[in-house]
Design a protein around this nucleic acid. Structure first.
Length: 240
DNA sequence: AACCAGGACGTGA
DNA sequence: TCACGTCATGGT
């Protein structure tokens, strides 16, 4: 078992290695139309551009739809919402529950997610993105967590990628990777892992965005459930 | 034809 | 608090 300080050093030194391997990931993706189809676009150059209200909404909707689901399905669901002209703060409120379910069926758990989207939209009527952004980060996080269907990871995705607040996102891939590298035990909580990153790193929004995306990229390549850590070139990390 | 994917919630102990 | 079942479609 290594010291907390040692773990932090490892997490600090891991980022440039991942960046060298995979480059900027440009998360969070936004939809663009290509040959009549809606596809995800990863904005690798303009990472710091300010999002519009509707773009913040799109990011948040994507964060809810991607819960335990392949992004490809989410891309379709977002495209459907877009086709129905529902992926906007001005139009979503008019959607019926059936319309929403129809659009997002391909993302799985569509009953729960349809409810979550409507709860979130209702929430936005009383708490604007603008207010959430100006608010204290922890206060906004607590508010988001009160919405049915928004848990810790989704809340952190919205904070980081829609509101540009330095809230580190922890997902299943990150957990798997850290456990395999023996940086955390398999009983570490979401909060344990989140705090570990946030204590180890400077509170930099762009860094947090890229780091999480890079961990997903790396884990997708080497930590699918079938091949758990085989051939991971980043074995030097395992300094016991 | 099982198994998995950028989780969250309700329940019972 | 926490382990466990449930929610569900689409790709391999």
């Amino acid at each position: 078992m290594q010291s907390i300080q040692n773990k932090k050093e490892i997490l600090k030194s891991l980022y440039p290695k991942l960046f060298e391997m995979y480059g900027a990931q440009g998360w969070w993706p936004l939809l663009v139309q290509k040959e009549g189809q809606y596809v995800s676009h990863y904005r690798k150059d303009q990472n710091d551009c300010k999002l519009t209200e509707d773009e913040r909404f799109e990011v948040s909707v994507g964060a809810i739809l991607t819960q335990n689901t392949n992004w490809k399905n989410v891309e379709k669901g977002l495209g459907n919402l877009c086709k129905y002209n529902l992926l906007s703060l001005k139009t979503f409120g008019a959607a019926t529950e059936e319309q929403i379910k129809d659009a997002i069926r391909c993302t799985g758990y569509f009953n729960q997610k349809a409810k979550a989207l409507r709860c979130f939209y209702q929430f936005l009527q009383e708490n604007s993105f603008d207010m959430l952004q100006k608010n204290e980060q922890m206060a906004s996080r607590d508010l988001l967590l009160e919405v049915k269907g928004i848990g810790p990871e989704t809340a952190d995705c919205i904070l980081l990628y829609a509101l540009d607040q330095p809230s580190f996102v922890v997902d299943a891939y990150t957990r798997r990777f850290l456990i395999e590298k023996k940086i955390i035990s398999n009983c570490a909580s979401y909060q344990d892992i989140k705090v570990l990153f946030e204590d180890a790193l400077p509170l930099d929004v762009t860094l947090f965005k890229e780091y999480h995306a890079l961990l997903v990229a790396h884990a997708k390549r080497f930590y699918s459930k079938k091949e758990y850590g085989v051939n991971d070139p980043l074995l030097e990390v395992r300094k016991i």
